[in-house]
């Protein structure tokens, strides 16, 4: 092991302890797993099981795209429901933007 590596790396003893404990923890049933870890999948929505992103088809569409030349949209979705929908740094001026649009 080189000197420069020793100075920036964790000791072999500390690593050995951490890895061996981790190995036994990982083998334990999930209920006994570290509960401070927040792990999210999409299991809440069954139909999203195979949420795979876009796929090709060989079909056309009957939906219509209404392309306007002037931009007239404002974000109007769940962003308005968060605990602090506006930014403390002044980005999130939804109301101001709405006023400007007309």
């Amino acid at each position: 092991m080189s000197k420069s590596l020793t100075s920036t790396a964790l000791s072999a003893t500390a690593l050995s302890l951490a890895l061996s404990t981790a190995l036994s923890l990982a083998a334990a049933p999930a209920s006994a797993a570290d509960h401070q870890e927040k792990c999210y999948g999409v299991a809440m929505k069954g139909k999203n099981d195979c949420a795979a992103g876009p796929g090709t088809t060989c079909a056309g569409t009957s939906k219509t795209d209404h392309q306007g030349s002037a931009w007239k949209y404002v974000p109007k979705g769940s962003c308005e429901k968060t605990a602090s929908p506006t930014s403390p740094t002044g980005f999130g001026q939804l109301a101001a933007f709405k006023e400007k649009k007309t």
Binding site: T8, A9, L10, A14, L15, L17, A18, L19, T21, A22, L23, L25, A26, A33, D34, Q36, E37
Partner: peptide
């Protein structure tokens, strides 16, 4: 591991290795 510990004194290496 050293980078992780440098980022946070409270870093729990064991728990994170177990999670991985």
């Amino acid at each position: 591991a050293a980078l992780a510990l440098a980022a946070s004194e409270d870093f729990d290496l064991t728990a994170q290795l177990a999670m991985l």
